[in-house]
């Protein structure tokens, strides 16, 4: 990790000095040691603050949305899953490739700083899973960046469980009523903080449907019907677009199993229109499933 940090600092300093980029997005250490957080270096001097450690978990590609209307050239560090986020933005025409300098890091798997912060708070919070490896990394299908200008580290093997869709299949075998009950239970706890949306790189609409007021498509009550509407609509919008970075589930303060929903969509899109994995490669002009309209489409499901 120290070597990776040194290389990132060196690259960032070089790019900022040469004027190749105006801002370099990476991570910096937090005040508790483990709460590594996103950092935006604006000058070669600030490049010294950049780190890459076992807590560099955030998908920084999402931060590019802040700059989509500007002209700044941006350097950014991406892991495997984050790089798929970049592909998402390029495919969605949210960013121009030439504005980016992408430093790819082959990812060894991360720990979750948020989980550690929760644990360390002393508060009564449920922290599931393994402290050594973040939940989202247990399902890693792509540790190596799929798009980059510079690559750091040796390529690594994916760390997939035996069956990536095990939980999805379990849910599929349940009856309609059981499934409804399950979703009713998990979605009733949603506090509508929209952290899942804000952390999501695929949620790049300029005006989100949930922020529309004329008309207001989705009610603002934290009732089961409004909550379900929120999550259903979000699920629809994720189909074929989720790059499986797991940030939504990671940031959810009430532990809603959002990746279970996303994996169901990934499985379905793969089965119906695939094989397809979103954001695995960037081909200019490529049309991923569900992004094209054809008049001769059978659309017999409508």
């Amino acid at each position: 990790m120290k070597e990776i940090t040194a290389k990132i600092q060196e690259t960032a300093a070089r790019l900022l000095t040469e004027g190749r980029v105006d801002i370099f997005i990476g991570w910096q250490k937090g005040e508790f040691g483990y709460n590594t957080k996103p950092f935006f270096a604006h000058s070669p001097e600030e490049a010294d603050k950049l780190v890459f450690d076992e807590y560099s978990i955030h998908n920084l590609s999402n931060a590019l949305l802040k700059f989509r209307d500007g002209h700044q050239k941006i350097g950014i560090v991406v892991k495997g899953c984050d790089s798929r986020g970049i592909v998402r933005l390029l495919e969605d025409n949210q960013f121009k490739r030439e504005r980016l300098y992408i430093v790819g890091v082959c990812c060894p798997g991360m720990k979750d700083p948020l989980k550690k912060m929760y644990q360390d708070s002393g508060f009564a919070v449920q922290v599931n899973g393994d402290a050594e490896l973040a939940d989202k990394c247990r399902y890693c299908i792509q540790p190596n960046p799929v798009i980059y200008d510079e690559l750091i580290g040796e390529k690594r093997e994916p760390r997939l469980p035996e069956d990536r869709f095990k939980e999805v299949k379990e849910l599929e075998t349940k009856s309609y009523d059981e499934r409804y009950q399950f979703f009713e239970q998990v979605l009733s706890t949603c506090i509508r903080c929209y952290a899942c949306r804000q952390a999501c790189v695929a949620c790049n609409c300029r005006t989100c449907i949930f922020d529309e007021t004329r008309p207001q498509w989705v009610g603002r009550e934290t009732s089961i019907s409004d909550n379900m509407m929120y999550h259903l609509v979000r699920a629809f919008h994720m189909a074929g677009r989720c790059v499986e970075c797991g940030e939504c589930e990671r940031v959810c303060p009430v532990g809603i199993p959002l990746m279970l929903i996303n994996r169901k969509l990934i499985k379905d899109v793969g089965e119906f229109f695939g094989p397809y994995e979103a954001g695995m490669e960037y081909k200019e002009g490529a049309k991923p499933p569900l992004s094209v309209y054809r008049e001769d489409d059978p659309d017999d499901f409508i």
């Binding site: 950092f39 935006f40 931060a63 509508r192 903080c193 952290a195 949306r197 804000q198 303060p253």
Partner: peptide, 16 residues
């Protein structure tokens, strides 16, 4: 400007 850079403007801080 600088401190808000990482902020994703979700509402977790306000709702908790």
């Amino acid at each position: 400007e600088r401190f808000s850079e990482p902020c994703q403007t979700c509402g977790i801080c306000t709702y908790t």
